[in-house]
Amino acid sequence: MPVILGIESSCDDTSAAVCVDGEILSNVIANQTIHAAYGGVVPELASRVHQQNIIPAVQQALLNAKVSKNDIDAVAFTRGPGLLGSLLVGVSFAKAFALGKKLPLIEVNHMQAHILAHFIDHPKPDFPFLCLTVSGGHTQIVLVKNYFDMEIVGQTMDDAAGEAMDKTSKILGLPYPGGPLIDKYARLGNPDAFKFPEPNIPDFNFSFSGLKTSILYFIRDEVAADPQFLQKRMNDICASVEKRIVTILLNKLKKAALTYNITNIALAGGVSANTGLRQGLTDLGSQMGWNCFIPQFAYCTDNAAMIAIAGHYKYLNHDFVGQNVAPLARMPFN
């Protein structure tokens, strides 16, 4: 019955979780509000706040799980990808904790952990399944053959879907973080009010740079014609942008599912918290006869529960690393 302490610090959320025999008993997330004043994450500030939050987050995770540090069997941590300074805080803490308690270390790839978050709760997907993993920095379609064998079959060639939403929110003058606000306003708007282009990208790959440019020029021209355009049509703009991003994602996912003849389909990553994407996958899944798996909101954004559950399976596989391990900002997927 392994007890795994999970540590996540890849960007601006400091998180700690405890997993006992494959069950998540605690998942503590310390958010950073300091970045709102700058319209995005400032890496140096993120690193400093991680240093302030890491020990309280771990202590609270242990308290919530009703375990002591002496009960821990291994420490799992995010090695990458992510902001190097932020990763360094989590990796250093994990190494020091493991060294002090003479525990094994388990490195976890952040993007693979998003996928393995589906094994926290029931129902759990059967292998093989396709996972659409969407975050601020990544957009991928992954063929998941087992816990340790995953293949990226499609990915963005430039910008990620989450980045497209973030940049759109900046164009619209929305405060950071803008993704949740686009989601909120989109629920009140007409998704067919405005038409934005869908790029013609081969295979199962994505591109969102052209969409960002078209949105920028559209807003520029409409505001020039009517300075009150954003105030009048904010809900419709957000709904139309969200619809286009969702259709781009789901059209590629549908193509991949048909090509690989797979009906177990999962969604993961921070953008999987978007209401339109969740509903869009549910609707498409009903149409296609898919078994769809969508994680709870708490396991969509960056969190240590997904690191701990990944660590659980790696522990059972005796997949450990030594104290010489270092963070990797651009950690390879495999």
Rank of each mutant, 00 (worst) to 15 (best):
T168G: 06
R278S: 11
S9N: 12
N64V: 12
A30Y: 14
F297N: 11
N146E: 06
G269Y: 06
F127T: 09
P191H: 01
W290H: 09
F119P: 07
W290N: 03
Y176E: 08
A16R: 10
R330T: 11
I171W: 13
Y147R: 12
V246R: 09
T78K: 01
D226I: 12
C11W: 02
N146Y: 04
A329H: 10
F297D: 13
D166Y: 00
Y315E: 00
N274L: 04
I237K: 08
A268N: 09
A17E: 08
L174H: 15
M111G: 01
N27R: 11
K66T: 15
T139N: 02
F320I: 12
A76G: 08
A239D: 01
G173D: 05
A268L: 09
D221W: 06
R330V: 11
Q323I: 13
N251W: 00
S15H: 09
N274P: 08
P191Q: 01
Q140K: 12
Q231N: 14
G85E: 03
L103Q: 04
M157F: 12
I215Y: 08
D159Y: 07
A57H: 09
I237C: 05
K124R: 10
H138L: 05
N251P: 02
K124P: 01
G289L: 05
L249D: 00
K252Y: 00
P123F: 08
T33G: 13
M1C: 09
A30I: 12
L5P: 08
A268Q: 08
F320E: 08
T168Q: 02
L174A: 12
G162H: 02
G136T: 06
F127H: 05
I106M: 11
F194Q: 02
P56A: 04
R233N: 15
A193M: 04
A65D: 13
L132F: 07
G137Q: 12
L84R: 03
Y260E: 13
Q140P: 01
N251F: 03
T263F: 13
L284F: 07
I309T: 07
D21A: 05
D166C: 00
G136I: 04
T14E: 10
G40K: 10
G289M: 01
T301V: 10
A304K: 00
P191G: 00
M331A: 11
N291W: 05
K167R: 13
M288N: 13
G269L: 02
V18E: 12
I106W: 11
K243Y: 06
F93N: 10
D149V: 06
I120E: 03
D13F: 00
E8Y: 00
V142D: 07
G210T: 01
M111V: 10
N31S: 15
A273T: 07
G100Q: 12
H138T: 05
A298K: 15
L253F: 07
Q140Y: 13
I265M: 09
N235S: 14
P43Q: 06
M165R: 08
V241Y: 03
G179I: 05
L99W: 15
V241E: 07
L316P: 04
N251S: 07
I245R: 02
F148M: 00
F218G: 03
K102V: 06
T156S: 14
G210H: 04
A117M: 02
M234N: 09
I54L: 03
D183G: 13
V108Y: 03
Q231W: 01
V223Q: 14
N27F: 10
T14F: 06
